[in-house]
């Protein structure tokens, strides 16, 4: 699924991507690589695209649960359930995620 253009994000920035009733957060790493995980925090239904990114960590904007956006693994409470991560590949100037 085409998600965004390659230059859509700067490093440590996020983008919300919605598809068929599901929602994802796409994050660009300090090295410029793209990653995708579930969009809503596993603690409450709050979108992570509104959170701050620091290195490889994305933080929920409401209650500060954190996740490694490369794997979806939860890092700090109150979030304690891992999120799903999705395969990302870049073809030409487009970022695709495998949903």
């Amino acid at each position: 699924m085409a998600a965004c253009a390659l230059d859509a994000l700067e490093s440590e920035e996020t983008l919300r991507f919605d598809h068929e009733g599901r929602t994802f957060v796409i994050t660009r790493s300090p090295e410029g690589d793209y990653f995708a995980i579930d969009g809503h925090c596993s603690h409450e239904k709050v979108h992570l695209a509104d959170g701050v990114v620091d290195g490889y960590i994305i933080e929920c904007p409401k209650h500060f649960g954190t996740f490694d956006y490369r794997t979806g693994e939860s890092q700090a409470p109150p979030a304690c359930i891992d999120l799903r991560s999705y395969e990302v590949k870049v073809e030409g100037n487009t970022v695709f995620i495998k949903i």
Binding site: V46, H47, A49, D50, G51, V52, E59, P61, K62
Partner: peptide
Amino acid sequence: SLGAIAKEIRL
């Protein structure tokens, strides 16, 4: 809205 303010407050 949470989206408009949360990043700024965190920073």
